[in-house]
Amino acid sequence: MPRGNRDKAKQNLVGYLFISPWLIGFIAFTFWPFIRSIYLSFTRYNIVTEPKWVGLANYKMLLTQDELFYKSAWVTIKYAIVAVPLGIVAGVALALLLNINVKGMSVFRTIFYLPSIVPTVATSVVFMWLLNPNIGLVNRILAVVGVQGPAWLSTSPWAFNSLIMMALWGVGGSMVIYLAGLKDIPVHLYEAATLDGASSVKKLRYVTLPMMTPVIFFNLVMGIISAFQYFTQAFVMTPNGGPEDSTYFYSLYLYNRAWKYLDMGYASAMAWILFLVVIVLTGLVFRTQKKWVHYGG
């Protein structure tokens, strides 16, 4: 008995030593800052001087007087509602197309994956130039087919649409995950469907798509979480929030509050509202899981 206890204690010591790099980082760079940011959200804080307790003032101000808060929250929610489903549909469709068994398919897979590894800042810079209203490639192509292209990044619905378009350009990143999911669908399911006389459309509807739901679910959750943190592209392409603040994303506003105006307490309150919204949304998505996600064959 005492010997077993000593072994267990030794195992614990060894285990905690191995995970100590993560544990230390977690406490110092995640857990403590997480708690601290709750406190900061109830203060006025400019980094240089000590935080001053203001109670609920930041939250009150945000929810009752800050139009930009609602505006930027709406831009971000709109982006999540449009870009995430579009990305899933495009990613799955592309994966289905790239799963067809013809020669040279690996070359196509590489080509469609390529855009997703281009650094975000480079993508943003290249798209700014592509979308140049007068001499950009997009409007030149449109002119050839007789369409006068918009001033993309400087008119209201188009700036936002440009960012959606740019997100779709990088859809190859999730396409690879769907492709791996397609490869994992057991052959016998298709064989059984063939024996039952199912058409290709029916196979897609009743075999392929249900078997893909776990991967779609994973991408949906990750997509929502990252949509709410959308920052770099908006910062590089429309640092002032774009035409009529139509690309003033929540994280961009939060960044400006914190680093442009050194309003760190206010920004912390914004961060906590963001956190709660993300938690509630992912929680809701997880609850729908039982209805449409099929685990196991």
Binding site: I19, V221, V278
Partner: peptide, 26 residues
């Protein structure tokens, strides 16, 4: 095998969903 392993592993996985904005300022 150590005590609390599964809990800590789940905790670690959960941190991946934490928006960076929350911890950024502290």
């Amino acid at each position: 095998n150590f005590t609390g392993k599964n809990t800590l592993f789940m905790l670690m996985i959960a941190t991946m969903a934490l928006p960076g904005q929350v911890t950024m300022i502290p």
